[in-house]
């Protein structure tokens, strides 16, 4: 297993697109979060969830993480390298597990940087916008329990999205198809539930079971009772999606030729 992990790590770090994609993920996350914290001001909306405001960028940065995860698998298929990989590591589940381990490590590290950057931006910009603790607003501080939970949860969220993409890509084997299905899964559900026209039962179901809508519940630190699903259960729903995708991918990997 350790040789497989070392091999996967070599593959990942020697491909130039990995670096660019991780950089894009960090830039997008921190950039969108900073944009959001700069424009949200206290006299207009003091009761906002400041932690969720400063972590908004995660919903854009996850796209770059998803692309990285998809390319980790489909890059091998498109270049024909998969035959060599599966010859070198005949136990295919080990090969998939090694990919998953390396990918998770890399995404956790990058996610930590991105989330830390977002929270720092919030920490320094929000008090200037009026969120000083007065008028019922929350000052952002990483020491506070819920904020720490939201930040750590967002890093986990990115890792789970990467694992979901990995499983899906292993099942579909084609980069275009995998990324299309994945982005559809992630972004179409909030598009439908955001505009408030659906039957409330369907809206609730979609928000509870959609991978992105449920997973991002981890970022909420206020009004937890009014959320469709709690923070940790929401992340658990995303974990279920990732587990299901990895299961499907692993099964297909074992049953198919290559």
């Amino acid at each position: 297993m350790s040789t497989a992990v070392r091999a996967e790590w070599t593959k990942l770090r020697t491909v130039p697109s990995t670096g660019w994609l991780l950089l894009t993920a960090v830039v997008l996350t921190v950039g969108v979060s900073t944009l959001e914290t700069v424009v949200v001001k206290c006299p207009a909306s003091c009761s906002d969830d400041t932690t969720k405001v400063s972590l908004t960028g995660v919903l854009v940065g996850q796209a770059a993480v998803a692309v990285l995860a998809v390319l980790v698998v489909t890059g091998e298929y498109s270049s024909g390298m998969i035959r060599i990989t599966l010859t070198a590591v005949p136990r295919r589940i080990t090969a998939l597990a090694a990919k998953a381990i390396v990918l998770t490590g890399v995404v956790l590290a990058t996610g930590a940087i991105a989330v830390a950057g977002s929270v720092l931006a919030g920490r320094y910009i929000l008090p200037g916008n009026g969120f000083t603790g007065a008028h019922g607003s929350l000052a952002l501080s990483l020491g506070a329990g819920p904020t720490l939970r939201a930040a750590a949860g967002s890093v986990l969220y990115l890792a789970l999205v990467a694992l979901l993409s990995l499983g899906l890509a292993t099942a579909l084997r084609d980069s275009g198809a995998s990324i299309t299905v994945l982005l559809g899964l992630l972004y179409i559900v909030p598009l439908l539930t955001d505009l408030g026209t659906l039957d409330p039962r369907w809206e609730h179901r979609l928000q509870e079971w959609g991978p992105m809508t449920a997973g991002l519940a981890i970022q909420a630190t206020r009004n937890l009772k009014s959320l469709p699903i709690g923070p940790w259960p929401g992340l658990g729903v995303l974990a279920l999606w990732a587990a299901g995708a990895l299961l499907a991918g692993g099964l297909l990997l074992r049953l198919r030729d290559a």
């Binding site: 854009v60 998803a66 990324i179 982005l183 179409i188």
Partner: peptide, 13 residues
Amino acid sequence: AGAITAVVVLLIV
């Protein structure tokens, strides 16, 4: 993969 993601981020996000 990159092309599709870029357009989705510009159009749907």
